[in-house]
């Protein structure tokens, strides 16, 4: 029952936000996600929550890891291992290194912005697709948010969504619980869509 309620709420919220973005936008889920995280935390300001998540994308960690670290990363998770079986077997670092650059921030460091951007692919464990589409998808989402955040009405709409979320009685959710709920509901939505098709 609660899940159905939250599912409806997310659907309505996405419809409201859709007006600020082009059709088939990639930015909706990350933006909705950071708004709800902001609402649950109830501190700081929303603009900072959104830009704070994006700030994670600045190059500050050492990207160039040893081959052993990269192989270990791919071998540790069953699904990752399966997806890159041939490359791991032949120690094909030329292919693994670029894939690692895309997958490590999403799967290893669990960057919130990237995890929500690739939530569908993660739910399907389609790691190859994340690696292939990483650059353009990230660039597009950031460009869309940059264009939309200049509109003052967007911030008003986001704040309203955050407040409504709290007033509907989900204040008890922790950050982690909310992430888990969103993940499961996004999965359910996709399943529903597939069934309709």
């Amino acid at each position: 029952m609660e899940e159905k309620k939250l599912q409806d709420f997310l659907k309505q919220s996405a419809e409201i936000l859709q007006d600020f973005f082009p059709t088939d936008t990639l930015a909706l889920i990350p933006l909705l996600y950071s708004t709800l995280i902001w609402a649950v935390k109830r501190k700081g300001n929303l603009e900072a929550e959104v830009s704070g998540l994006r700030l994670w994308l600045e190059p500050e960690v050492v990207d160039n890891k040893p081959d052993e670290f990269i192989l270990d990363f791919f071998e540790k998770q069953q699904a990752l291992q399966e997806a890159f079986k041939a490359e791991i077997k032949s120690r094909d670092m030329k292919s693994l290194r670029p894939a690692f650059r895309a997958l490590y921030p999403v799967v290893g460091l669990e960057e919130p912005f990237l995890q929500s951007l690739f939530s569908e692919e993660l739910a399907r464990e389609d790691f190859r697709l994340i690696a292939d589409q990483f650059d353009w998808k990230l660039k597009q989402a950031l460009e869309e948010i940059k264009a939309a955040e200049k509109k003052p009405e967007l911030w008003k709409a986001l704040k309203k969504i955050g407040e409504s979320f709290m007033s509907l009685g989900w204040a008890w959710l922790s950050d982690d619980e909310l992430r888990a709920w969103l993940k499961s509901i996004l999965g359910m939505e996709r399943q529903g869509e597939e069934e309709e098709e």
């Binding site: 501190k43 700081g44 300001n45 900072a48 704070g52």
Partner: peptide, 9 residues
């Protein structure tokens, strides 16, 4: 970090 960003802003 996220709260720090808010205060820097």
């Amino acid at each position: 970090q996220e709260e720090a960003t808010a205060f820097y802003k």
